[in-house]
Design a protein around this nucleic acid. Structure first.
Length: 581
DNA sequence: ACAACTATAAACATTA
DNA sequence: CTAATGTTTATAGTTG
């Protein structure tokens, strides 16, 4: 499988959980008992327009508009945790099943032969509806995969099963593709742990009792109880997007294809998928290794989340925003606007730090989640084609900051970055020591920095060229070896009219709205600056780029920071601080 | 309603 | 000639 595929897969997972989340929100709003109660307040943050519509109807783009990178990340983690959990429980179940088989076989001489090999094992593991498929006698693990676990906080204890003994070697998400590709690394910890538990089923599994998960046995269900206890009404929609608890679906099955990392095998129906799952993704070295990798991915993400959360906490503390106010995640019904059950997700993820980090994040994460990414406005939800993700700079001026903070995220998740082409191009150019790039280099930067731009190249490349030509801020310079593009910072700054002026209400707005859109330039500049190093360390710090003195080193928000004349020569000093957006 | 922005698409021109 | 690179024009959505 290709890196892109893996990323896409991960994104899909996150989006699916996100849908679930929205569904929850929607149901919460419509739920009779909840409406008046304060509890419903937790759902209020979701734009009504969003909450009211069927989550399943949302396109990935729309989801992206609704959820901020941190949110998506949280979802992703959740999803990954779920996967791990499933495997763990699966192992457990296998053990039990083996035990059962032993007993059975002792009594009755023979068992049903063949066929079930795979199905028997994973078959029931996949069952999410005990009612329809009576689980084996005693099977604590029957519920794995159950939706509940998808959103419920992952208890540290749960996350620390045998698999948790994995090597802590840091795994860069970027390396995943390679990792996934490799066949299960033989003789690795996870494998050992499995065997230690006497779970080597490869041989005995063949006799497993038949559970051939009768696909599509499940009638469209209607009611469910979500993790938080909120009853939910699911539409019979066969849309796999709402995998989690629909009997006729599976977390690893969606859009007609297997969602196992790097698989994407097409399966006509659930039955076929289950068969596929059992044959291709049976409990073997490879699957184990893949699971291990996934775990590491989760860990990396968690660590990153912790760092960012800590930073936010410090920032808020510094700004006297009472970080403590947003109560701990443990409280599902978080009054903080924007944080609804969502924060639970985040929290749980943060709490499950394997490394036992003191979670500064826990307390800080709450505020993070609610941060709305640019373009979150209901406007973006508009139907029709590829969501017009128009993420204007306005909401994301601090591109450097945003980008720096979610660098890894955008790099690996197929999510459209909330920046305009112009700001991205500028960022690409400014990141280089000599502040100039050829068109092709700009292209490369895009693909390197954003998974999203690894697709539809014709479209965005055209857009890039269009932007380069259209905006006066981009200047083409004939170079020895062709032409390169540079940025005229003044022009760049110029193009945006000042918007809101700094006001004392700024912080307040931020707290309540937690939207970049409400921040003024100075704050944004601060934001950008704080995280600048993260992203620009290379070029910006480059001594050689003395020119970097140019005012702008800091992204969009940089303007406020004094737009100095770039070349010292002439530069109309701005009369008024350019506080754009 | 309107202007300013931005994204997309596409036709064309120019250059390597 | 082809592909890459640039320019322009047109259309449409979003926002203040």
């Amino acid at each position: 499988m290709s890196p892109a595929e893996l990323l896409h897969f991960q994104q899909q997972q996150a989006l699916q959980v996100a849908r679930q989340f929205l569904l929850q929100q929607a149901s919460g709003l419509s739920s009779p008992g909840n409406n008046d109660s304060k509890q419903s307040a937790s759902a209020v943050q979701v734009p009504v327009s969003v909450a009211m519509m069927s989550p399943q109807m949302l396109t990935p783009q729309q989801m992206q508009q609704i959820l901020s990178p941190p949110q998506l990340q949280a979802l992703l983690q959740q999803q990954q945790a779920l996967m791990i959990q499933q495997l763990q429980e699966y192992y457990k179940k296998q053990q039990e099943q083996l035990h059962l088989q032993l007993l059975t076989q002792q009594q009755a001489g023979k068992q049903q032969p063949k066929e079930v090999r795979g199905l028997g094992r994973a078959g029931h593991a996949l069952q999410r509806t005990p009612a329809l498929h009576p689980p084996l006698q005693f099977r604590p693990g029957w519920r794995l995969g159950i939706p509940e676990q998808g959103l419920v906080s992952l208890q540290p204890s749960q996350a620390s099963g045998p698999l948790q003994t994995l090597p802590q070697a840091a795994v860069c998400p970027t390396d995943l593709p390679q990792l996934w590709k490799g066949e299960g690394a033989p003789g690795q910890p996870a494998e050992d742990s499995v065997k230690q538990e006497g779970l080597d089923l490869t041989g005995t599994a063949t006799t497993a009792t038949s559970f051939a998960a009768p696909p599509k046995v499940s009638p469209p269900l209607s009611h469910h109880t979500l993790p938080n206890g909120q009853p939910t009404v699911l539409t019979p929609r066969r849309d796999s997007s709402s995998h989690e608890e629909t009997p006729g679906s599976h977390p690893l099955y969606g859009h007609g294809e297997c969602k196992w990392p790097g698989c994407e095998t097409l399966c006509e129906d659930l039955g076929q998928f289950i068969k596929h799952l059992n044959t291709e993704h049976a409990l073997d070295d490879r699957s184990t290794a893949q699971c291990r990798v996934q775990m590491q991915v989760v860990q990396q993400l968690e660590i990153q989340l912790a760092k960012e959360s800590e930073r936010l906490q410090a920032m808020m503390t510094h700004l006297h925003m009472r970080p403590s106010e947003p109560k701990p995640f443990s409280q599902p019904l978080n009054p903080v606007p924007g944080s609804s059950s969502f924060s639970k997700v985040t929290v749980s993820a943060a709490d499950s730090f394997p490394d036992g980090l003191a979670h500064p994040p826990t307390s800080a994460a709450a505020p993070v989640t609610p941060l709305r990414p640019p373009g979150l406005g209901s406007a973006s939800l508009h139907s029709g084609g590829p969501a017009r993700r128009r993420s204007s700079d306005k909401f994301c001026s601090p591109i450097s900051s945003e980008l720096a903070q979610n660098h890894e995220f955008y790099k690996n998740a197929d999510v459209r970055p909330p920046f305009t082409y112009a700001s991205l191009i500028r960022q690409a150019i400014l990141e280089t020591p000599d502040r100039q790039l050829t068109l092709n280099e700009i292209y490369n930067w895009f693909t390197r920095m954003f998974a999203y731009f690894r697709r539809n190249t014709a479209t965005w490349k055209n857009a890039v060229r269009h932007n380069l030509s259209l905006h006066k801020c981009f200047v083409r310079v004939e170079n020895v070896k062709g032409a390169v593009w540079t940025v005229d910072e003044r022009e760049y700054q110029k193009r945006r009219p000042p918007k809101m002026t700094g006001s004392p209400t700024l912080v307040k707005n931020m707290i309540s709205g937690l939207s970049y859109g409400t921040l003024n330039a100075s704050y944004q500049a601060a934001l950008a600056e704080s995280s600048f190093p993260l992203l620009n360390s290379p070029g910006m710090l480059n001594p050689g780029s003395a020119s970097s003195l140019l005012p702008l080193g800091h992204d969009d928000a940089g303007a406020p920071v004094e737009p100095l004349p770039s070349n010292g020569s002439s530069s109309p000093p701005r009369l008024s601080p350019p506080q754009y957006r």
